[in-house]
Design a protein around this nucleic acid. Structure first.
Length: 812
DNA sequence: CTAGGGTTAG
């Protein structure tokens, strides 16, 4: 087949594709180095044009035929080409048999090892060179340094650094630029700077190297400072500088700097360079201007896969994952060669949209593209499955994953935590701990909310200790999570202490603290903190208003709550969301202003949703209002026919009004629809163990003891005035074996807690539903007769029972 | 052989 004039293979001899404008014509400068006597030989020209392994193999027979195979320059060229195409085996097959190896042959072979093999191979070849008496030249060191940098191998890198000093290259510009780069790539940017600083002369490339070091290590401000210094010292930033600085600018999200660099790009005539434009797409996206990013993207004459990836990332980062997927489709249609980053981006978009079907399609693509061993891609798959609520599949991938990284563990922990598998999240965290993998801020921010959910103060303190030991106690995200956790564990004053200690606070930090006060019924404190916040630099957001209005609601501060609602709309121009409306109805309704609440609903500018009527129904239960209760309930049955809870609420309202026929009707209705009430359950933490109690259950080992103690306890509180609430219907769907009031889960949990702790100890209870009226009343008396403080966290808020009264002021 | 710097990501 070699007699063909034109090969039928897909890799033609001539390169007909137009190279992208950025790629400089390297080949030209390479040719100038070829000695003329070789260059004039036809085989040499062919070798120069060789673009693939296949072509190379075709050219070898004529070279051998012409007896050129034994010429040093041909041997060297062959070694170079075999290395370039990735076959070190063939390169060394040429190299080894050569009897009198010239230095250049060694140098070329070393370059091959450094660029296409393991570091170990490169180093052992370098030792052999020494052994064979070949004097090293500067670029031996630069190649080795580059390889060490790429592998972040500081130990070997330092060795090379030492050797180049021994060989007298320590003031060589190229060698030292390589050293600077090495330290920067090994994340020792300060060390890199020291080397840079010591250099007697520094050219543009050296500046670019150190600037890249800062940029790639996330030190955006330093990066920008250095660019200014470099200009002051008379260096004009080139396209490499621009492409290096733009990510730093993206990191700090500075549109202003981004735009000024864009201006520089235009003035300098860089505006047709793919890399520069791609970096601009990234900057504009990260500064929230996807539109501008897209315009640049559209204007690009050539795009690399990185351009596409950046544009996709731009959309996902700006919350438009649909558009990201559309771009991906376009990539497939246009036959763009996908990379691992493409896949990661697309998975991110699928995760955002909860589109598991698309996600699974991408999973197949991962197989086809042979990316199963790319840990980053696999991490993205784990995250995607978790976001699509398939933690089981994610766990499977995690279990089979080779070379798990911290990110893999984090993705899994977050996945468990966000899907309500709190215990799994914690177990996973402990496993990671046992394997001596050091957690980072992401790990903590995933685990801490899981502990907040568990609401066990002992574990809260444990993780707090761990945060300190891992030096993460200056991280805003972690600290904010801790503030929230302490509040959710009932330790609101500890939360405040941490809050006060923080140097930097985000809006979420303030929100967590305000919400903490709110759920503890400390509305006044919430209002005070909110006004303090308004004096500072951090602007309240929509969530802040949700927290503050709800705090007012829990404390009966109707007027304050209404003022906040007005303030939000008028002063902060925040459009109220459905949640805000719901909270407002709660505020009015809880306070007994049922007519106002109903009017408020009627005047809403948007169609009220479930949460709004839910708040109304809850208020009707508190204030025993059948009329509004029925109205709200009917709306709810329309909007959410499958939720049993609303039926129960309505039944309770009827029961309070002794409308037993209606109660029965609701019960029949529920049975017909097959609806069930969530079983009540309370948790107590005792000596490293969490004890769970279900209403009426006798499964606990201490069950007998608990029930008999509860009996005497009930007698004791009756003696001081407790009257059981015979009207309080707790479970409508219960059959004839109606449980007694005093077998409610919270009473069991309290009795257990009292029995197993020393006098004076505060008891923490966590309940999945709201506390029922009778239990609330009984707990007040229990706190009185036992002299204990009892803190109950229910679905919505905290109740601190002490000396016969509750922090909620019977208002919940 | 003829050296050193650059864009996307969980």
């Amino acid at each position: 087949m070699s007699s063909q004039l034109l090969p039928t293979t897909t890799t033609p001899l001539s390169t007909t594709t137009t190279p992208p404008p950025l790629s400089p014509p390297h080949t030209l400068s390479q040719r100038t180095h070829i000695p003329t006597h070789v260059y004039t030989h036809p085989s040499a020209i062919l070798l120069e044009l060789c673009t693939s392994m296949k072509e190379l193999h075709q050219f070898i027979p004529p070279i051998i035929k012409h007896g050129l195979y034994n010429e040093h320059l041909f041997q060297t060229k062959l070694v170079s080409l075999f290395s370039k195409f990735g076959s070190l085996i063939e390169a060394s097959r040429v190299f080894e048999p050569v009897e009198h190896k010239i230095d250049a042959l060694y140098h070329t072979m070393l370059k091959g090892y450094a660029q296409n093999s393991s570091l170990d191979n490169a180093f052992s070849f370098f030792s052999r060179m020494n052994y064979d008496g070949v004097r090293p030249v500067v670029y031996n060191f630069t190649y080795l340094l580059k390889a060490c940098g790429d592998n972040s191998d500081l130990r070997k890198g330092k060795e090379v650094h030492g050797q180049l000093i021994v060989n007298g290259f320590e003031s060589n510009l190229f060698a030292m630029a390589g050293v600077v780069n090495l330290y920067a790539k090994c994340r020792l940017v300060n060390e890199a700077y020291k080397m840079f600083d010591r250099m007697p002369e520094r050219d543009l490339v050296c500046w670019n190297t150190i600037i890249a070091g800062y940029s790639q290590n996330g030190l955006a401000k330093r990066t920008l400072e250095l660019v200014i210094r470099m200009q002051n010292e008379g260096h004009r930033p080139d396209q490499v500088t621009v492409v290096t600085v733009l990510p730093a600018c993206a990191d700090i999200g500075s549109l202003k700097i981004g735009k000024s660099i864009h201006g520089y790009v235009v003035r300098s005539g860089f505006e047709s360079l793919v890399n520069v434009l791609t970096a601009l797409v990234d900057v504009y996206s990260k500064c929230g201007c996807v539109g501008a990013a897209r315009m640049i993207f559209e204007s690009m004459q050539y795009r690399t896969v990185v351009s596409w990836n950046s544009m996709m990332a731009g959309y996902t980062q700006n919350g438009d994952s649909k558009e990201a997927l559309a771009l991906f489709e376009q990539m497939l249609n246009e036959g763009v060669e996908l990379t691992n980053v493409t896949i990661m981006e697309v998975l991110h978009a699928c995760a955002d949209l909860g589109d598991i079907a698309k996600g699974q399609f991408i999973h197949q693509l991962v197989h086809q593209l042979n990316l199963l061993y790319d840990v980053s891609v696999m991490n993205s798959l784990i995250s995607m499955y978790c976001k699509c609520k398939r933690v089981d599949i994610a766990a499977q991938i995690f279990a089979n994953l080779q070379g798990k990284t911290l990110v893999s563990w984090n993705a899994m922990i977050l996945g468990y935590a966000q899907n309500g598998h709190v215990t799994d999240a914690l177990n996973h965290f402990c496993k990671m701990h046992q394997k001596n993998i050091k957690p980072d801020s992401f790990t903590m921010v995933s685990v801490i909310p899981a502990l907040a959910e568990l609401s066990v103060l002992r574990q809260a303190k444990w993780i707090h200790g761990l945060v300190i030991r891992t030096c993460l106690d200056k991280n805003v995200f972690v600290m904010t999570a801790l503030v929230d956790m302490y509040a959710k564990c009932g330790a609101v004053s500890t939360a405040r202490k941490l809050f006060d200690m923080m140097d930097v606070r985000h809006v979420t930090t303030w929100n967590a603290m305000i919400d903490g006060y709110g759920t503890h019924g400390l509305g006044r404190a919430a209002v005070e903190l909110f006004s303090e916040m308004r004096k500072g630099a951090i602007k309240p957001n929509d969530i802040t208003f949700l927290c503050i209005i709800s705090a007012c609601s829990h404390s009966g501060l109707v007027e304050e709550g209404q003022n906040c609602f007005t303030l939000m709309k008028e002063h902060y121009s925040i459009e109220p969301s459905m949640d805000h409306y719901g909270t407002m109805v709660d505020l009015l309704g809880r306070a007994g202003k049922l007519n106002e609440a109903w009017d408020f609903i009627q005047n809403m500018p948007i169609e009220p949703a479930i949460n709004v009527f839910g708040a109304m129904l809850g208020a009707c239960k508190i204030h025993k209002n059948v009329d509004f209760g029925e109205k709200a309930a009917n709306k709810l049955f329309e909007l959410d026919p499958d939720e049993g809870g609303y039926h129960v609420l309505l039944a309770n309202i009827y029961a309070k009004a002794s409308m037993w026929d209606k109660v029965a009707k609701v019960r029949v209705d529920m049975e017909r629809k097959g609806l069930q009430k969530t079983p009540g359950c309370s948790l107590v933490d005792l000596r490293n163990e969490v004890h769970t109690f279900y209403s009426g259950s006798t499964r606990h080992p201490q069950s007998e003891k608990i029930y008999s103690y509860l009996e005497t306890l009930i007698d004791d509180i009756k003696a001081v005035g407790y009257v059981p609430d015979s009207n309080s219907i707790h479970d409508v769907d219960e059959d004839v074996h109606e449980q007694l009031l005093n077998s409610h889960s919270e009473k069991l949990a309290i009795a257990f807690g009292l029995l197993n702790t020393n006098p004076g100890t505060t008891i923490h209870i966590r309940k999945n539903l709201r506390v029922c009226g009778d239990c609330h009343n009984a707990t007040k008396y229990i706190s009185l007769v036992t002299g204990r403080e009892i803190i109950v966290r229910d679905m919505h808020r905290f109740h601190h029972f002490k000396s016969g009264s509750c922090s909620c002021g019977d208002y919940w």
